[in-house]
Amino acid sequence: MKNIFDFEYREGSGIFYTLDPLIKVFLVMIFWILTLYSGLSSLVLLTAVIFIIVIYSGLTERFLRQTRFFFLFVFPFIVIFQVLFHWSFAGENPGLFFFNPKVSIDGFVIGVKVGLRLFCLLSSSIIFIMTTSPLRLIRRISEIRVIGFQIPASVTFLFVFINRSVTLIFNDLERILEAQKARGFSLRDVGIRKRILGYIALLIPLLTISLERAQKQAIALELRGFGSKKVDIKTDSQSFKM
């Protein structure tokens, strides 16, 4: 299995592990807003902040594995695309099709900006997931009262469910691709068109497996008394710190 569980939370030390998950949600949202409205120099600064947090939290190796694809393929694609085609769709009347590549420095700057912006949005989410215990998060969410009303268990269930399901769906996809390869068909070795069609065809078995599993998970959560909360005893040994 290819580090599928790298993406998940693991116990660690440092401020980002001990911070209250709700404060972390708030900080991530602020970071997103800053990212969306920053210029190139601020984006470079925000990227540096990301790396400082990653190194400080001891996530370097896992983080680089997670973002490797982005740096190797997505970021260069965005920059090259902007360098070559920026002027084709800039201006007041952008053409529907842009077949006239024209190298431009502006395109390069915009490409780097778009790439860094995407990186900041993506990596701040990854850091949040890697450093936040889902149990602490749902515990804090279930404590929230809006005008005296608690957030429904079904909403919290969604967090638990998504947290586990995303990883498992990728795991299922890996196994199906492996089974296809064993039967002589590798989606990774075919052209783009066939690959896209192949992935679309995989949606059916993936959906079937996911639905079956969703039902089992819903049963499992019921059996574990999720949402019953008869007695409110905090079992968290870590105190939240700023």
Binding site: F5, E8, Y9, R10, E11, S133, P134, L135, R139, V160, N163, R164, Q217, A220, L221, R224, G225, F226, G227, S228, K229, K230, V231, D232, I233, T235
Partner: peptide, 17 residues
């Protein structure tokens, strides 16, 4: 459901207090 054995057990304990 959870990424550590401890949280897995703790989850059940919290649900039933």
């Amino acid at each position: 459901f959870f990424p550590t054995v401890e949280d897995e057990i703790r989850f059940q304990m919290e649900n039933f207090g």
